[in-house]
Design a protein around this nucleic acid. Structure first.
Lengths: 336, 336
DNA sequence: CTGAAAGCGCTTACAG
DNA sequence: CTGAAAGCGCTTACAG
């Protein structure tokens, strides 16, 4: 049914070794022989079976990417970065997006079982030892937005980003600053909160628990959090949400409460999602180098493949890429 | 380096046949033997090589999805649908997203060369004969948002969606309705335009060329198109953009021109992207059953695998799923 | 219940 | 320049 290398060899009147040779462009092959083989390939519309090829060469030329919720523009930029880095080195990208955490393992298994030469894992709920197992099986893994001491990773300077935002708010004169949290157990959230708190402390300001309202990063959760903040006896002057989605919720909540943003209360976010640019007022936020994150992580993973040949595992490397403050109008700057 | 089935067999003191048996849960295996094998597997942390397994069984249990720009929520919903359908049947999903059209072929090749058991292709710039080749090689392919007579496909009823929208606008009393086109050569655009035109004709109304401004679906292109419409001696009362991105551009253009939407001019779009809900005024648009599209396409592709066994290629099937009109405020309905 | 052998479709030394 | 053979890591009749 499917045509194999044997069919081609037969039709061209040569051995399969020779067919393989011309297909791979290795060794000298007589020009006329090559022509015959190529002709047979064309006539039979032969396609090498990639599975067999990979099994024989122990190389798939594929890179795996495990990433949640590709719908998020932030993740999308990561995908683009990974894709470009992979393509640049002649690798194809296989994306495993898993809405359900349980699936992460399924895909991890898929990838570890010979399907990819390297992989980047992002924001996945996977244990360190699981990842180490994959690495021990010879597949380099690089983490994005996730930290395990023994595994190379690329992250974003959440602490620094939050600091920068905090300084910006302080610079605008706000003193009572509140925070809407992301999911508690994430480092991102913890680091952002820490950045804000430290920066406030530097200015002799406190971040009382009453000024910390809890959200979960998801759409909608910022609304209730904001409501609770607005009901405070002394309303905050500025609200820093752990991500843009929640900041948008907060703006909506403020409006529904009859307040004007930023005149009555400033609201800022984190992530710089594309929506941030469109809403009214446009959202001041912190942009993350998502593309770079993906690009660098993938490049490193691919690099490890090469360096491996001559020796053992390279030292894990941890890089935190810098963020960028994006000032729009929701913070009260750039007032019309 | 990597542990194989031989290592397990040796450690358990059995043949590889037996190891394979317990791994696949086939045939009777003595309980104690099974235990020994399982123990060896655990101790060696053995993982079957999926490549070898697939080669031997001629089955990968993977489904391929070729899809452009995963960043688009519409495409994302398709991905979710495909993923759910695949998971439901025990398949894993491999996504190939290619920003560059040239890559489409690369991924198509990858998939056709033994990596997946079935695939769904969406909005890809791939010729019919290329797809047929893949199918002839035994990999069922189902198209989404793309039509080739001989290949099963799922699409959206663009014509009907546009009709519904046109009727809605007419119902609100608008008579001078203009259209901002998507990329000319796409069927989507042609069908939407045709739907609008036919529906207007039914009401004895014309759609003169002057009322058709050209955009290309992309962000920004709606702005200039709208400008040209606004400069018309007799300004349209309502503008129907071929997608939401351009509708948002159009709203911006109207505002910059000093007009109020919808009081001075109505603007509606197509797609119901998530942004549509957030902008001011919220956009009236046409929602597409993206998730369903993906789910049904994937289900069919997987179904074909099974039916294949007993016979030949099933007849290609073409389905157009219905759209849904989403009325918000940019059309002038639901006025406060 | 279990093992030896052939086969999946390639690649790659090894000879010649 | 070219072919025969072994090997990649599995599965699966076929015997026993």
């Amino acid at each position: 049914m499917t045509v194999t290398i044997f069919d081609v060899a037969e039709r061209a009147g040569v051995s399969i070794s020779t067919v393989s040779r011309v297909l791979n462009n290795r060794d000298r092959v007589h020009a006329s022989t090559r022509e015959r083989v190529l002709k047979a390939v064309r006539e039979l519309n032969y396609q090498r079976n990639a599975l067999a090829q990979s099994l024989a060469t122990q190389k798939t030329n594929m890179m795996g990417l495990v990433i949640p919720m590709v719908n998020d523009p932030f993740f999308f930029e990561i995908v683009r970065g990974v894709e470009d880095a992979a393509t640049a080195k002649g690798y194809s990208l296989l994306i495993a997006s898993q809405p359900h955490p349980a699936q992460e393992h399924r895909y991890l298994n898929l990838f570890r079982r010979g399907y990819v030469d390297a992989m980047v894992l992002t924001a996945a709920d996977i244990q360190e030892h699981e990842v180490k197992q994959v690495i021990e099986q010879g597949v380099p893994v690089v983490l994005v937005q996730q930290y395990h001491k023994s595994i190379s990773s690329f992250g974003v300077d959440n602490y620094g980003g939050a600091c920068t935002m905090a300084r910006h708010l302080l610079g605008l004169g706000y003193r009572r600053i509140a925070y809407i949290t992301g999911t508690d157990y994430t480092i991102d959230n913890a680091e952002r909160l820490r950045g804000l708190r430290d920066c406030l402390a530097e200015h002799g300001l406190d971040l009382p628990d009453t000024h910390i309202a809890s959200g979960d990063y998801r759409h909608g959760s910022g609304y209730d959090a904001m409501k609770s903040l607005l009901h405070l006896p002394q309303r905050p002057e500025a609200v820093f949400a752990a991500n843009d989605q929640m900041a948008l919720d907060a703006i909506r909540a403020a409006k529904d409460y009859g307040l004007h943003v930023p005149d009555d209360i400033a609201v800022v976010g984190y992530d710089d999602i594309s929506l941030a640019h469109y809403v009214d007022p446009p959202l001041t936020t912190v942009a993350q180098p998502a593309y770079e994150l993906g690009y660098q992580a993938a490049s490193l993973a691919l690099e490890i493949i090469d360096t491996r040949h001559n020796g053992r595992e390279p030292e894990p490397k941890h890089v935190n890429l810098p963020t960028k403050l994006v000032v729009r109008r929701s913070c009260g700057a750039n007032r019309k």
